[in-house]
Amino acid sequence: MIRKFVTDTLQDGSRLNSKQVNRLLGVTWRLMQIQQNKVATEPLIKAVYTLYQQRNLLFPVRTLLLKFFSRVYQKEDSKTQRIRSRSKVLSRWLAGLPQQLALLGLRNPELSNQLIDIIHSAASRANKELLQSLQATAVQIYDPLDGTLVLLPAEAQRRLVQLVYFLPCLPASLLTCLSRCCIMGRMSSELAATLIGILRMR
């Protein structure tokens, strides 16, 4: 009964405030710890993802959902390869982060920073779905005119430059974008030097 109440409420949770969502996510997490198998946990993750996909969520709610997914991902990723069974919903969520980052632009720098942190963590773990998505979105993110890189503050720029190291490949279109970011002064000379160093390592 509790499981059904939680999933139904989350799936129809557009009117929930941050306190209500926080309580629901707490119960969801506990339910996932009680039955740690994919059959039991996947419907719960899917219910949270349904809420996450809704537009116009309040920032505190969006942040809570991001933290929940990040926690689930980190726990799942810590399992040994022998017992790991990747959640399809979690993989879909993770793969969607680079596109969300590219579309977010300057609208919410704090949320962008949270996305960058999660993307960086997954990229450093060589998550296949995330890296494929990051590769597909790279030209948007590093566009010298209105890409995420040139819109965000210096610290976020530094983290985005570090992500270049993890990209599966560096096509000419992306290299052109990165070159123009340097030439047009869209990043500091120090950060441009860091980028050049990363490209040389590649």
Rank of each mutant, 00 (worst) to 15 (best):
L103W: 10
R125W: 05
L94Q: 06
S18Q: 06
I196E: 05
L199H: 06
L175E: 13
V61E: 02
L191T: 11
L131D: 15
Y73V: 11
Q35H: 13
S14C: 03
A122E: 05
L175F: 08
P168F: 01
L24D: 05
R15S: 11
L24Y: 06
I119T: 00
E155W: 05
W29M: 14
P60W: 00
R186E: 13
S87W: 05
T137I: 06
L103C: 02
L152D: 06
A40P: 09
G185C: 05
W93I: 01
C169G: 02
P98N: 02
L130C: 13
S121G: 02
R202N: 14
N37K: 09
R158N: 14
Q99Y: 08
E129C: 07
L151E: 09
E110V: 01
I83V: 15
Q81N: 07
N56D: 15
Q36T: 07
S179Y: 10
L57Y: 10
S173C: 03
A95T: 00
M184T: 00
K67D: 15
K46N: 13
G105K: 07
V72F: 02
I183Q: 14
G147M: 11
A126R: 15
L152V: 14
E110G: 00
L16D: 02
S70Q: 13
Q135R: 04
L10K: 10
A138N: 03
N56M: 09
T80G: 14
N113Q: 10
T41C: 15
K88T: 14
A126E: 11
K79I: 06
A40G: 03
R71W: 11
G96L: 02
V21E: 05
R159Q: 15
Y49V: 04
K75Y: 06
E110K: 03
N37Q: 12
V161P: 08
A47M: 12
T7G: 06
S18G: 00
L131I: 05
L51K: 11
L10M: 08
Q135N: 09
V21I: 10
C169I: 04
Q99G: 06
N37Y: 10
D146I: 08
L195G: 11
D12R: 15
R23D: 15
K19P: 02
L16C: 07
A122L: 01
A192I: 06
E155C: 01
T137H: 08
M184G: 00
R84F: 07
L115A: 00
S87V: 07
L111C: 03
P144D: 02
F5P: 00
L66A: 01
T148E: 07
F59T: 12
Q162A: 15
